[in-house]
Amino acid sequence: MSAHASRPLGAPVAVRLTVGLARPDAVPPPLLMLLGMVSTQVGAAVAKQLFASTSPGGTTALRLGLGATLARRA
C-alpha cells in the first residue's frame, strides 16, 4: 500500500476518484450541479411571481425562511 492510498486528499487525482467512486452513498458531482442549477432557476421563477404581492425584502425573507426550513429538515 502506498503512502498516497492512506491519505486520499493528498493523493493524485486518479486515486481520489477511485476512493470517491468506491463510496456507495456518494452523490455524483454532475447530479449535484444539475440539482443546484434547477433549484436556482425555480427559486428565481417563484420569486418573480412574488414581487407582485410582496416587496423585494419580503420576497427575500420568504426565500431565506423556506431555505432555512428545508435545510433544517435535511
Score class of each variant (00 low, 15 high):
G20V: 03
T60A: 11
S6R: 09
L17W: 03
G20Q: 09
L17V: 05
G10D: 15
Q49A: 14
R7M: 07
A5P: 00
R63Q: 07
G67C: 04
V13L: 15
M37F: 08
P8K: 02
T54W: 05
A61T: 04
M37C: 10
T40D: 13
P30Y: 07
V42G: 02
L34S: 09
S55W: 11
F51T: 07
R23P: 04
S55C: 10
V38L: 15
A3W: 02
A22G: 14
G20T: 04
A11G: 04
T54K: 05
S53F: 10
V19S: 06
M37E: 13
V42T: 08
S55R: 07
A11R: 02
L62D: 01
L70T: 11
V27I: 14
P28C: 02
A71K: 03
A68C: 01
P24M: 06
G36V: 13
P12E: 04
G58W: 01
R72V: 04
R72G: 09
L17P: 00
V38A: 15
A45L: 15
M1L: 13
A61N: 00
A45W: 14
A22P: 10
G10L: 15
T18Q: 10
R63L: 10
T69Y: 00
S2Q: 07
P24L: 12
T18H: 07
T59N: 03
A61E: 03
L35H: 10
M37D: 13
V38M: 12
G57T: 03
A5Y: 08
V38G: 04
P30D: 07
M33L: 15
L17K: 06
T69E: 01
T60I: 02
L70G: 04
H4K: 02
A11H: 02
S55Q: 09
L17I: 04
M1E: 10
T69V: 05
R73V: 09
A44C: 03
P56Q: 04
A44W: 03
R7L: 06
P28L: 11
R73M: 08
A22S: 15
D25N: 11
G43V: 05
V19D: 05
A3Y: 03
T60P: 00
A68R: 05
L34T: 11
V38Y: 08
Q41L: 15
R72F: 08
A5W: 06
A71G: 04
G65I: 01
L32M: 12
A3C: 01
R7A: 09
S6L: 12
V42P: 02
P29C: 13
G65C: 01
A52S: 13
P30H: 11
S53P: 00
S53G: 03
V27E: 10
V38F: 10
V13S: 11
A68W: 00
T59D: 02
T40S: 12
M33N: 13
L9T: 10
D25T: 14
V13Y: 14
G43M: 08
A74W: 14
P8N: 04
S2L: 09
A3E: 11
T59L: 00
L31Q: 09
V15I: 15
